[in-house]
């Protein structure tokens, strides 16, 4: 066997192996990628079982190779792949569970930053709030799902047993790491939309104008208090 034969065959898993032991290298590449996905998506793996997960992850790995040696970043598009993976269609929430795990992983490895201490908010002149823009933790992630993915995740991490969960109930979930522990909270849809608007760079006044149209009975003081208590804001800028 020659180097160019090796190189051509390692890039194309359907190509004829150029050596009887060539499969060892292909197998090493595939199992490292499947293992990286298993580490990043453990609940997804538990929901479908090890064999199904290995087949699904292997199909993904065959299509999507890592762009660098930093496997921490591998598998960002796995949730999108799962949503379109026909053999998993009987579990319609599976892709969103994976999306939530992806946010958790991102939060775990995100840059460290400190939330503003509560005193900073008390110092804001009430009339100034409307024009404020907010900076958030780099670990912040938001997910709005048509399924109870927050409850499913919690059920796999010591939360209430899944028997009591209505899997068809929509849930919004916030993921963030204020210190060294990744926190996952189920939040109401109005809070989700408010934080999404603010983290997109909107001023508070503009964000509230948009969100209050979509959510009848939007209670700004309560929402603001809830937002501050989440411990995810790192900066306020007029």
């Amino acid at each position: 066997m020659r180097e160019e034969q090796f190189s051509a065959a390692i890039g194309d898993w359907s190509a004829e192996p150029p050596h009887p032991r060539f499969g060892i290298y292909r197998n090493n590449v595939a199992s490292a990628l499947i293992n990286a996905l298993r580490v990043r998506y453990p609940v997804t793996a538990q929901l479908v079982g090890n064999d199904f997960f290995a087949a699904m992850a292997g199909a993904y790995a065959d299509k999507e190779r890592p762009s660098s040696a930093v496997l921490i970043d591998y598998g960002n598009s796995f949730p999108v792949f799962i949503r379109a993976f026909a053999p998993a269609a009987s579990l319609p929430y599976l892709g969103d569970v994976a999306a939530l795990e992806s946010l958790w992983w991102h939060a775990y490895h995100a840059a460290d930053s400190s939330p503003l201490p509560p005193g900073e908010f008390a110092a804001v002149v009430p009339t100034a709030w409307e024009g404020m823009r907010f900076a958030f933790l780099p670990s912040l992630g938001l997910l709005s799902s048509r399924h109870a993915v927050g409850s499913i995740w919690q059920g796999h991490h010591g939360g209430p047993a899944l028997g009591s969960v209505d899997l068809t109930a929509p849930e919004c979930v916030l993921v963030a790491r204020p210190e060294m522990t990744v926190e996952l909270r189920i939040i109401d849809p109005a809070s989700h939309d408010l934080i999404a608007a603010l983290s997109g760079g909107a001023r508070l006044g503009d964000a509230v104008a948009t969100v209050s149209v979509r959510h009848a009975g939007f209670d700004l003081p309560a929402q603001l208090q809830g937002l501050i208590s989440l411990n995810i804001i790192t900066g306020l800028h007029p």
């Binding site: 190189s7 490292a32 190779r65």
Partner: peptide
């Protein structure tokens, strides 16, 4: 490293 991306093994 390969045209198709990073290959997660130590290749010969």
């Amino acid at each position: 490293t390969h045209d198709t991306g990073y290959l997660s093994d130590l290749l010969a």
